[in-house]
Write a protein that binds this DNA or RNA. Structure first.
Lengths: 181, 181
DNA sequence: GTCTATATGCAGATAGAC
DNA sequence: GTCTATCTGCATATAGAC
């Protein structure tokens, strides 16, 4: 993929993550990406919706990678999920509660308003769930962990505190641990 | 509270729930509320942000009531939470995945962009958590249930399927049940 | 209390020069 | 590939009549 295009995508991902899809203007994306203004419609001829969809796909791959990395750093699945969740808590706090995955905003705002972006978000979430399931050996459980992570990220952002994520880390740990036997 | 004002608030809540805060225009709220156009700035002189904040507070009270009602319909807390979650799953499906609480969108979109709306959302979430804690007898556990519900609503909406909520219902049931002993 | 008219600005998008 | 200029439309908000 072209470098300028990649810059636009990454800037869009950051902005969607911080403030959402509808609150982000194309001018803002251009500015934030340090990309020549004339490039946007050259690389994304179908406009904002295309940017949204490609951002979701790209984000899904990035996050899945990080999930795999994070989960590989502990012996037992329960402990791995706990550590991953605590890492997210730190990341969210250090970003002043603007981090937490570009997907959540994009997915929530377009669930019933853009079929194209929605399809991309579903695919991205599926990838994330697969990454979790690889380690947990249970797709349903992976779905529940994903659910919990998204909910906890949302509440942590709203409450301007990583506590929701830290609590989630402990509950998930206890739950998965109990299952291991 | 004045009736016209109440109509505006309820229309705003529905629209924010379906499509989000930034995607909803004031004209749309007027149209959907069947309220005279000149009334909006009469009742909400501080504009859209005031509407957002008051909507969040109102929604928080409504949802807390429904949580209390829902949780009172079973003998044991574990079963009560399960039934509440399944009820939400049905509601979300029957709304074509546009329902799921006016708060989520509002809260996510404004977490770092409007202190006023953010404060209102926090208060609303606190009320909801209190309503859960009353029945569960454990504020941390109530927070975890809230986290799970919000995450599951998000994923159900994105995936256009109530499965995430139904799975969450079973996991929460198992978890709370195990604690009862 | 509610109306119409309007101010002002930015949104997404397009055309055509270079 | 990138530029500038511009179109169209809607956004929030305000003023002043009734």
């Amino acid at each position: 993929m072209n470098l300028a295009k990649q810059h636009i995508l990454e800037a869009a991902a950051r902005l969607f993550e911080r403030q959402g899809y509808h609150a982000t203007g194309l001018n803002e994306i251009i500015r934030e990406s340090n990309t020549p203004k004339g490039s946007l419609y050259y690389y994304f001829p179908e406009g904002k919706e295309q940017i949204g969809a490609e951002t979701a796909l790209w984000a899904g791959e990035q996050i899945s990678k990080r999930i795999r990395e994070g989960l590989s750093q502990a012996e037992q699945p329960a402990q791995a999920v706990r550590m991953l969740t605590l890492r997210i808590a730190n990341a969210v706090e250090q970003s002043n509660f603007s981090a937490g995955g570009p997907l959540m905003m994009l997915a929530a705002e377009t669930a019933t308003r853009s079929e194209r972006i929605n399809a991309a978000c579903r695919k991205a979430y599926r990838q994330m769930q697969d990454a979790l399931a690889e380690r947990l050996g249970d797709d349903n459980l992976a779905g529940f962990v994903l659910t919990t992570l998204e909910g906890a990220i949302l509440l942590s952002r709203v409450q301007h505190s990583g506590d929701a994520l830290r609590h989630a880390a402990e509950y998930l740990y206890t739950y998965i641990k109990a299952r291991e036997r």
